[in-house]
Simulated scan of single mutants.
Amino acid sequence: MITALHHVGHVVRDLGAAMDLYARLGFSLPPPTCPALPPADGLPPEPLGAANTHAHFPGAFVELLTVVGEGAATRLPGDTRVTPLQVPADRLPAFRSAVEATTADLAAALARFEGAHILMLTPDDIDATAARLRADGVAHGGVHTAQRSVETAGGTRTSPVRFLELDGTGVPEGRVGYAQNAGDGAGVAHPNGAVDLVESVLCVAAHDLPAAERRYERYLGRPARRDGERRTFDLAAAQVTLITPAGLADLLPGERPPALPAFAAYAVAVRDLAAAGRLLRDADVPVWESPAGDLFVPAAAALGVAIVFRQLVSR
């Protein structure tokens, strides 16, 4: 069973500028991190892959990341923590090749548009999810384990995360996968009052909506609620919404997708929506009200993805 959103990934060209924007939006972000590897055995490590930081919530996060290529170290924020990876010499070429392939995918996504390109979901049992997907004919790369930094009340710690990603050839909107152990994030206080990641909005062409709905039924293991040009998959603690460009304009007036298909928006729950609105306006951030009563910062002012602020509902 898919219970929540693990994280969304916002891919940007200038990480420092994006962090400044997120600070104005009222998010607390730790210094970014970036891996490093030597280009060959015996040489000093160089930054590569992706540099990222996170807006942490108790069970989810928003990731800000940028591609790190040749010479990119000078363009990273000054407080970036460059972390050399320990890889045996005999495995270094293959490992570096794998990182470069992932970097190429991110670079291609960024060339397509600056905005949200990643959606990771939280299952209650990732091994069972992997088996269900395989039985449904959904190709993926299997379950892997990695280490990631998590912000907690006691500071930053490293936590293992188990994850799998779908085969990208069948997922034109970006990277979609599943992960467990988002970390608690309970000690992170965001000035805007954000406490959870509650919705991801995928915009698809009207003629592609039926096929996208069938795909996400398989990804999420459940049917969607249908409402005009909107398809909503209700999870235990969040939603995944599929919508057409016309439906997006109704949902978030004035919004247009950066491409089709594309993750056009995501939503966070805040403790006090009125207070979040005052913070945004005081920071001179454009903010609009949706027909549903949410507030949102348009994609044009938020580096390619509309960011929705929603009043927290007690469960």
Rank of each mutant, 00 (worst) to 15 (best):
D41F: 07
G154Q: 12
C34F: 05
T241G: 00
A269P: 08
G154S: 06
V313F: 05
G304F: 10
A36I: 09
V201Y: 08
S200V: 15
P88N: 10
L76H: 12
P84E: 12
G9R: 01
H144C: 02
Y219V: 00
S314N: 03
P84W: 08
A306G: 13
A36G: 08
R222V: 02
R315D: 14
L133S: 09
D196Q: 11
P31G: 05
L133I: 06
E199N: 04
L164R: 05
R281Y: 09
T83V: 14
R157C: 03
V305T: 15
F95L: 01
T156L: 13
H56I: 02
Q147N: 02
G183N: 13
A4T: 07
D282P: 06
D79H: 14
F95I: 00
Y266M: 06
A131I: 13
N192P: 03
L303T: 01
P44E: 10
L92Y: 09
L5D: 05
A306F: 13
C203A: 13
P245T: 12
A4R: 11
R222E: 10
H207A: 14
V150G: 00
G174V: 12
L37D: 13
R225W: 05
F95R: 06
Q239N: 04
P47G: 05
F57M: 05
P84S: 08
T232Q: 07
G185C: 08
D125L: 05
D127L: 12
Q311A: 15
R175W: 07
T152G: 14
L252D: 07
P257R: 09
Q180R: 12
V204D: 08
L295G: 01
S28W: 11
P286N: 04
F163A: 05
F309D: 09
R132W: 14
A18K: 03
V240K: 03
V297T: 09
E63W: 04
Y219W: 15
P88Y: 02
